[in-house]
Design a protein around this nucleic acid. Structure first.
Length: 747
DNA sequence: GTATTATCTAAGTCT
DNA sequence: TAGATAATAC
C-alpha cells in the first residue's frame, strides 16, 4: 500500500509525509505540485482518514477530475467521496444545500457575466444614468471587485475611500446600481459568479452551526494554486480550516497571474503570519523542461522584485535553444508558426497534441487559425467564444433554465419572443412595469396574466397565456422525464429547432449542428451520471443546468479522442504542459499589455505570465513577434517586447528578418514543403480510406457513435471525397465524409 | 410588432 | 473589424 511513496523524490516525499497541521508547499513550475497534492491525499487516506472528510480545491474542473481519478486508481472507489472541485463549484454545492437559510431556493440560477451585464445595462438605463459615464463593462467589473473583497452594499456605503474613488470618476451612483443589482438578482433567485464566494462567506459567518458542520466534515483541506486565491476565497478557507487547522496549500508565487480577478499574492506570502507554526516546503527540481528552458525562464523571473527566493533547476538534458523569430506582420507570423509545426511533425512524426500555440489575447487566434487551415492542420481553440456562449446554445439553455427557475429574468427575456411569438418590447415593458409595482417577477405576472389589470389587447393576452402554458407544461415534463428527453421535447416544442432548420446558410447549418451537439452532450451527461444514482431516480435537467453553469471549454479538453493542436491564452494554459510551445505576439503594448504599463505591479504580473508561458514547454519553445499587426481595424507598427531583451542570450537562437535576406527563396521552400506535406497527407488518407474497406450502399443500415442508427439514402463523390447521406432515427438527415464518418454497418 | 439598415463603440486575462 | 444597438420603413 505504501509503495505509492516510491513515486516521489526526496523533497516531494518530505512535503507529503512531514506535513501535519498548516503546511505550505512552494513549488517551482514543473516540480510536481499536482503530484504532491495527489499523493498527500492518498497518504491521508492510507493513514485512515475518511475520504468523506477531505476537501480538495483546484483551479479547474479538469484538474479536479484528473486528480480524483488518479487517487481512485490507488486507493479504490472510496475516493469518490472526496469533495474535490473548483472553488466556485464546491461553494455552489454548499449553497444549494443551505440555500433556504439565505432566502434562495436550491434551484437558484447562476448568472454568467453576460447575464450580469445585460441586467446592469437595464438598471443603468432605468435609473436614467449617462451610459457614457456608466459603461456596463466598467460597472460590472467594479461591482465584481467589490464582491471579491467582500464589500457589501452597506460596507460600500460606509466606506469613505471607495465612495470617493467613484465620486472622482463621476460615478457616484455606483452604490445605488450595486444595491439595485443585488435586489434584482435576489428577486430572480439568481447568484452571479462572485456571489458564490460572497454568499458562502455570509453563510459561514452568519450561521455558526453551519460553519461548524462543514468544519467537522472537512477535517482536511487541500488547496491547489494558492497564489491565485482572492480575499473571499482566502477567508472561506481560513474559517473552514480554523477548527482542525489541517490545511495543506500548494502554490508558486511566480505563477500568480489572476490579480485582475482579485487574486492576492499576499495570501501566499502571508501564510506564515496566519499560521505561525506552519511547515514550509520548497520543491525546486523541475522535471518537465530542458535546462535551456528552465534557465531561460529563470532569467525572466529574476527581473521581478516581489517574490520568494527559489532556485528552480533541472537534471534534464540541455535541449534546443529557444527560437525567436521576427515577422513582417501577423499573417506571416501565423504562417511561420503553422509551417514550423508542420515541419516538426513531418520530421518527428509527432501528433498534433504535442503542440500548443499560446497568445496574450483571444483576438490573436484568428490569423493563426487561417494559417493552420491552409496547411490542413487540425486545431482546437479554447476559450474565446466558447461553445456555451454561442447564441443558439444560450437560447436553448435559457429554456432549460426557465424550466428550472421561472424567476430567472435573464432567461425569460431571452426566450419570451424567441422564436417570434408576437410578444415584443412594448408588451415586455408593460409586464416589467407591473412587476416592479407589485414587487413581483415578470413570470409572476405572466403566470397569472388573466387576473392582472394590464392594458393589453386580447390577441396579446392570448399569446401570453400560450407562452405561460407552454412553460408550465415544460416544467411538468422536466419533473417526470430525464434531462435528455426533456431537452429533446423542449427543443422541438418550443420551435427553436424548426427556427434553425429553416436557415440553410452555412452558418445556419452550423448552428443547427451545435444544437445537436448540445443534445449529445446532455445524452452523455445522463449516461455518465446514471451510474451514481439509485435505479428509480432520474438525471434531470436541473442537475444538468447546475453542472453546466460552471463549466469551461478547458474542462472538456480530454472528452474528445481527436488529435489537435491547442490554441489558447497563456492564462488558460496554466497547469498544462506540451512538448512544443509556440508563444506569439511578443510585442510592446500587446505583451506586456498596454494596460499594464502604468504600474510596476501590473508589469510584474505580465512577466509572471510570460514565465508561465515558457514553463509550459517540455522540449522546445518558439517565440515570435510581428513588426506590423492588424489591431482595432488598422495596421499598427509594433516594437519587439521588452521581455525578449530580458531573456538571457545564451539560451536563445535569434532569427531576425534581416538575416534571411532571400525571402523569395524561403517562401518557395516553404511552399514546396507544404505541397510535399499535402501529398503525404493525401497518401495517408488514402491508406486510411482503403484500410477501412467498408463498402457502403444505399439502403444500408448503419450506426454512428454520436447520431445513433440510421439508413443510407444517398452516396456522392469519389475517393477521399466520398460522401454518405444518412437519415438518422433521432437526428434526421446528415451528410458525412466517408473517411471521417465513423459509420459501422449493422444488420 | 417586425425586418432591415445605419450607426456606434470597443478592442485583456476568467469563474 | 465586428458585434450591439438605435433608427427607420413596412
Amino acid at each position: 500500500m505504501n509503495e505509492y511513496l516510491n513515486n516521489l523524490n526526496k523533497s516531494q516525499l518530505k512535503s507529503v509525509v512531514d506535513s501535519n497541521g498548516p503546511s505550505i508547499v512552494i513549488a517551482g513550475a514543473g516540480a510536481g505540485k499536482t503530484r504532491v497534492l495527489t499523493y498527500k491525499i492518498v497518504h491521508l487516506i492510507s493513514k485512515g482518514v475518511n475520504p468523506f472528510n477531505i476537501l480538495g480545491l483546484t483551479f479547474t474542473n479538469k484538474a479536479a477530475r484528473e486528480m480524483k481519478n488518479r487517487i481512485e486508481k490507488i486507493v479504490g472507489p472510496n475516493a469518490k467521496n472526496i469533495w474535490m472541485g473548483t472553488f466556485h463549484s464546491i461553494f455552489a454545492k454548499i449553497l444549494r444545500y443551505e440555500s433556504e437559510l439565505m432566502g434562495y431556493s436550491s434551484n437558484f440560477s447562476i448568472y454568467d457575466t453576460d447575464d450580469s451585464k445585460s441586467l446592469l445595462r437595464r438598471i443603468i438605463k432605468n435609473l436614467n444614468l449617462d451610459i457614457d459615464l456608466y459603461k456596463v463593462n466598467q460597472v460590472q467589473s467594479r461591482i465584481s471587485s467589490l464582491k471579491n473583497n467582500l464589500i457589501t452594499v452597506n460596507a460600500y456605503n460606509n466606506n469613505f475611500d471607495l465612495k470617493k474613488q467613484d465620486l472622482i470618476s463621476k460615478r457616484e451612483k455606483i452604490g445605488l446600481i450595486y444595491e439595485t443589482y443585488n435586489k434584482e438578482c435576489f428577486k430572480a433567485d439568481a447568484m452571479d459568479f462572485d456571489d458564490l464566494l460572497l454568499k458562502t462567506n455570509e453563510l459561514l459567518h452568519n450561521y455558526p452551526k453551519i460553519l461548524h458542520k462543514y468544519q467537522m466534515k472537512f477535517q482536511h483541506i487541500l488547496v491547489d494554486e494558492y497564489q491565485d486565491t482572492n480575499h473571499a476565497q482566502y477567508l472561506i478557507i481560513k474559517s473552514l480550516a480554523s477548527l482542525n487547522e489541517n490545511l495543506f496549500v500548494v502554490g508558486d508565487d511566480a505563477q500568480s497571474i489572476y490579480s485582475f480577478r482579485g487574486a492576492n499574492i499576499d495570501n501566499i506570502l502571508n501564510f506564515q503570519k496566519d499560521y505561525p507554526d506552519a511547515s514550509i516546503f520548497k520543491l525546486e527540481q523541475n522535471y518537465r523542461s530542458t535546462k535551456n528552458i528552465v534557465n531561460a525562464a529563470n532569467s525572466i523571473i529574476k527581473n521581478n522584485k516581489n517574490q520568494y527566493f527559489k532556485n528552480v533547476w533541472t537534471d534534464n538534458e540541455s535541449g534546443e535553444k529557444i527560437f525567436v523569430k521576427e515577422n513582417f506582420n501577423d499573417n506571416e507570423e501565423a504562417f511561420n508558426v503553422a509551417n514550423s509545426i508542420n515541419s516538426i511533425k513531418v520530421q518527428e512524426f509527432s501528433p498534433n497534441l504535442d503542440f500548443a500555440i499560446l497568445y496574450r489575447t483571444n483576438a490573436q487566434s484568428r490569423s493563426i487559425e487561417e494559417a493552420l487551415n491552409k496547411l490542413n492542420l487540425k486545431y482546437k481553440i479554447f476559450g474565446g467564444l466558447s461553445f456555451y456562449s454561442r447564441k443558439e446554445i444560450k437560447d436553448l439553455m435559457a429554456y432549460f433554465k426557465i424550466v428550472v427557475n421561472q424567476n430567472d429574468e435573464e432567461a425569460l427575456r431571452r426566450i419570451i419572443n424567441y422564436p417570434k411569438r408576437g410578444i415584443g418590447l412594448t408588451t415586455l415593458n408593460k409586464l416589467s412595469i407591473q412587476a416592479n409595482k407589485s414587487q413581483k417577477t415578470i413570470w409572476n405576472i405572466i403566470e397569472n396574466i388573466e387576473h392582472e389589470k394590464i392594458n393589453l389587447n386580447s390577441s396579446t393576452l392570448n399569446k401570453l397565456i400560450n407562452f405561460s402554458d407552454q412553460i408550465k407544461s415544460f416544467k411538468l415534463i422536466s419533473q417526470t422525464k430525464d434531462a435528455l428527453e426533456t431537452a429533446i421535447i423542449i427543443s422541438k416544442e418550443s420551435g427553436v429547432l424548426n427556427e434553425l432548420k429553416k436557415d440553410m446558410t452555412p452558418e445556419g447549418i452550423n448552428r443547427y449542428e451545435n444544437i445537436q451537439e448540445l443534445i449529445n452532450g446532455i445524452r452523455n451527461f445522463v449516461i455518465e451520471n446514471k451510474e451514481d444514482l439509485n435505479d428509480n431516480s432520474k438525471v434531470d435537467i436541473n442537475s444538468y443546468i447546475e453542472e453546466i453553469a460552471l463549466i469551461t471549454d478547458l474542462d472538456d479538453f480530454d472528452d474528445e479522442e481527436n488529435d489537435f493542436i491547442s490554441l489558447m491564452t497563456i492564462h488558460q494554459s496554466k497547469g498544462l504542459e506540451f512538448e512544443n510551445i509556440f508563444i506569439v505576439g511578443l510585442e510592446e503594448n500587446l505583451f506586456p499589455s498596454q494596460m499594464s504599463m502604468a504600474s510596476t505591479l501590473d508589469l510584474e504580473e505580465e512577466r509572471r505570465l510570460f514565465y508561465v508561458a515558457l514553463t509550459r514547454a517540455k522540449k522546445r519553445i518558439s517565440i515570435s513577434y510581428a513588426l506590423n499587426r492588424f489591431r482595432f481595424g488598422n495596421m499598427i507598427h509594433s516594437e519587439p517586447s521588452r521581455f525578449l531583451k530580458e531573456l538571457d542570450e545564451q539560451f536563445i537562437e535569434y532569427n531576425s528578418r534581416s538575416v534571411s535576406n532571400n525571402n523569395f527563396n524561403s517562401v518557395i521552400k516553404l511552399k514546396k514543403k507544404f505541397e510535399k506535406n499535402k501529398l503525404k497527407k493525401i497518401v495517408l488518407e488514402k491508406i486510411n480510406y482503403n484500410f477501412q474497406g467498408q463498402q457502403f450502399e444505399i439502403g444500408m443500415k448503419v450506426k454512428h457513435p454520436k447520431f445513433g442508427i440510421g439508413v443510407i439514402f444517398n452516396l456522392d463523390g469519389q475517393g477521399i471525397n466520398k460522401k454518405i447521406s444518412v437519415k438518422f432515427k433521432e437526428f434526421g438527415e446528415k451528410t458525412l465524409l466517408e473517411q471521417y464518418s465513423k459509420l459501422e454497418i449493422i444488420n
